[in-house]
Nucleic acid binder design. Structure first.
Length: 275
DNA sequence: CTTGTACCCTGACCGC
DNA sequence: TGCGGTCAGGGTACAA
């Protein structure tokens, strides 16, 4: 479901709700959302009593920093959070609640995941730092320059669209923003990374950062499953130029937007201005 | 090494 | 109305 702007939006919503609070009880309704070797009961026993010190993000992962360990969560396609009082989630369409975390002030954090592709992982600092080292640089970090993008992207022969979505090259970019960033940079998504010029890398760097920031300002893109916390919608879908717009005219040049499939995922692009 | 494919799961939508 | 096929903001294991 969510990419960098969506996960960061959720982080910003969750942090003030959770920070400083102790988790008093955990209920796991589907063991398959506990990633790794712990059973639901073992997971519960190790989380209950822990205090949440802070909420961070890396790539598309959320980190609940506990007073003992890090509760890592990945939302994949349909994971969502809500915080409310009482036994019923505050959002009507939470029909697939997979886990609940009671807080020390009587509120509950609900995790809903229709497809149950997302889930939770309890790690130590060192386990997390090993996981984390597989990710490429954060594209919105201040120090992320065009040369860093070039270094991350310009090896191998992968199509640039696939390379952008490769989390070990650049962190946090998924299917929507890969298409949008390439359109903004006027680069054909099928181009092999090895052939990209310095000028194209500079355009892609500017385009990627502009689009991710702009989406973050809009609280992300909601046209399907994604919601921020407690059902709040994003609005960047109104600003998408190519994604899910097959058959529409390009806002740059008027040619008809096309959809192709790369690595099993839809890519949208304009054959007129993306060369 | 790098790149592509199948798969996890449920639901919405489309054509027949 | 039902049925089958396809697709969905992701990531991983495994094959070539």
């Amino acid at each position: 479901m969510p990419e960098l702007p969506e996960v960061e939006t959720i982080r910003r919503d969750l942090a003030p709700e959770l920070e400083g609070h102790r988790i008093t009880a955990v209920r796991v309704h589907h063991d398959d959302i506990i990633i790794g070797t712990l059973s639901g009961a073992e997971f519960r026993d190790r989380i209950e009593g822990r205090r949440i010190l802070g909420v961070d993000r890396r790539a598309k992962w959320l980190l609940l920093r506990l007073d003992d360990g890090i509760l890592v969560t990945q939302l994949r396609m349909t994971g969502r959070f809500a915080v409310g009082r009482g036994s019923v989630p505050p959002v009507a369409d939470f029909r697939h609640v997979a886990a609940e975390f009671d807080l020390d002030d009587g509120r509950t954090l609900f995790y809903d995941d229709m497809r149950r592709l997302g889930g939770f992982l309890l790690l130590s600092e060192s386990e997390w730092s090993r996981e984390e080292s597989r990710f490429g640089p954060e594209p919105l970090n201040d120090g992320f320059r065009a040369s860093d993008l070039g270094q991350a992207l310009r090896h191998g022969r992968a199509p640039v669209k696939n390379a952008l979505m490769d989390q070990s090259r650049v962190a946090g970019v998924g299917n929507i923003y890969a298409s949008e960033a390439l359109h903004g940079a006027r680069i054909d998504p099928t181009r092999p990374v090895s052939g990209l010029t310095d000028e194209e890398i500079r355009r892609l760097h500017r385009s990627l950062r502009r689009i991710l920031k702009s989406s973050l300002d809009s609280s992300g893109t909601t046209f399907r499953d994604y919601r921020a916390v407690n059902g709040r919608s994003g609005s960047f879908q109104t600003l998408l130029r190519v994604y899910d717009r097959e058959g529409d005219p390009c806002t740059n040049c008027g040619q008809v937007i096309r959809r192709i499939v790369q690595a099993g995922r839809s890519t949208y692009y304009c054959p007129g201005c993306q060369l």
